[in-house]
Structure formats: C-alpha cells, structure tokens
Design a binder for these strands. Structure first.
Lengths: 107, 107
DNA sequence: AGTAACTGTTACCTTTTGGTAACAATGAAA
DNA sequence: TTTCATTGTTACCAAAAGGTAACAGTTACT
C-alpha cells in the first residue's frame, strides 16, 4: 500500500516507476490524442480488469501524468486526459510504439 | 514458465514484453556502451538478486536483444553485449534516461 | 588440504500483482 | 417499482515475481 515515490538517483528507476508496468504506457498512449472516459479506456483494453485499470489510473494521476475530471451527473461521467507532464512523454511513447511495430512486421 | 513470445498486434504489448519490467531497460542501458561481465552488471545493480539477474539476462538473450559469450576459463568468464536489435533501442533508452533525469532534477 | 574466484542453479518461502464476483449510488426511463 | 447506465470499491483468492541460502564445478594460490 505504501508506494513511496522513489527519490532514486537512477533515472531509469524513476522512469520505470512512473510509466512501467504492463498497462501504463498503453493508457498514456490512448490518452495522448484524446480525452477519454473510463468506459472508453476499458473498452479499448479488454484484457485489463476494471479494478486494475482503476488502480493504474489513480497512480498515474497521483504521479501527475494524467488529470481526472469528474462530472456531477447521473450516471457518472469521468474523463481522463494527459497533463503537461504526461504530454512530455508523447515522443517517447511514439518511439516505443514504432519500435514495437517494426518488431511485429519483421516477424 | 511458458513465456510465449506474444504475436500480439499491439505494438506496446510487444515492446513492453521485451523490455518491460523493473530491470530490463537498465540492463540494456548498462550494455549500451560496453560489453560487460556478469559480475560487473551485478555490481552496478546491487538491488537485483543474482537469481533474477540471471533470469532477465536469459530472457533478453532469448528475445535476441543481447548476446552471451562464455569463455572456457577457470574461473568462468561470461560477457554480455547488445545485438544489433538491442542497439536499435539505444535512442529510446537514452530518451527514457533523459526524461527520468529531468524528473529527478525538477523535484 | 583448504580456500578463493566466478557464474550460475535449486529449493523454498514471501511479496506483489491481478482476477472474479458482489455490492454501492442514483436519477431517468419503461 | 423495476431496470439500466456508469464508475467505482471491497473481500477474497490465484498467479507471478522476487528474495535468501545452500550447493556446484574447476583451477590456482597459500
């Protein structure tokens, strides 16, 4: 439960801590062009459970990479989008996707 | 134990599968300039156990990102280096490190 | 004979991560 | 009054990941 924000000197440990894991980079990528609702993200990532998606979104928000906006409506509507810090990752996310794309094609 | 090489259509799943996890990007970064021995890598990453380091190196080798060269000497000497595929990741690794470095400094 | 050097492997245990299913909240629509 | 829609939370369980400690193998050095 105690997820200490690593004041680690290693820049990789820092980066991996923020955007590592199986899901975060995909989530960030999904948000890189659009503000999206919870249900949209979930629908585009069928292999992640809602529970874990909620957790990942909370961590990304706590780390300042995404913004969560909740509208006082019934049924609820919640929109997620990238913060400026999150935006600063876009080039890296694109490179990661491009590299993976090459891997897929060259197979 | 069955680590199937994902023929997944999602480029992120592919990339994360290959270089994700807490350790792999750091290992690749350590090897990006130098061929290094097992003991060297271990010494530079004190927080990873030898067991897990061995596992990660095996996976990286199996995925074609690093090369393992074993010399028939006593005591044993084993050297690890990047393959061309691994080399192709260097720009991304540098970007990840640079991004993390900014995070550390801006704190 | 005993020990150090180096790169692992193996057995066993703990911690972390993730899944499923049930529940919650609430207004609108049927 | 019942159901639907949406975004979660919670309790509980299973799987994955990682740690520690002991052992292996071989030559040279003391």
């Amino acid at each position: 439960m105690e997820k200490k924000v690593e004041t680690n000197l290693c820049p990789f440990t820092t980066t991996i801590g923020l955007i590592g894991g199986r899901w975060k980079s995909i989530i960030l990528y999904l948000l890189s062009d659009h503000t999206r609702r919870f249900g949209e993200i979930s629908a585009r990532m069928p292999s992640i459970s809602r529970k874990v998606l909620t957790e990942q979104l909370k961590e990304l928000e706590a780390d300042g990479l995404i913004r969560r906006e909740q509208f006082k409506e019934i049924p609820p509507r919640v929109e997620y989008s990238l913060t400026p810090l999150g935006q600063s990752l876009k080039p890296i996310l694109n490179d990661l996707a491009a590299w993976g794309q090459e891997m897929v094609l060259d197979k």
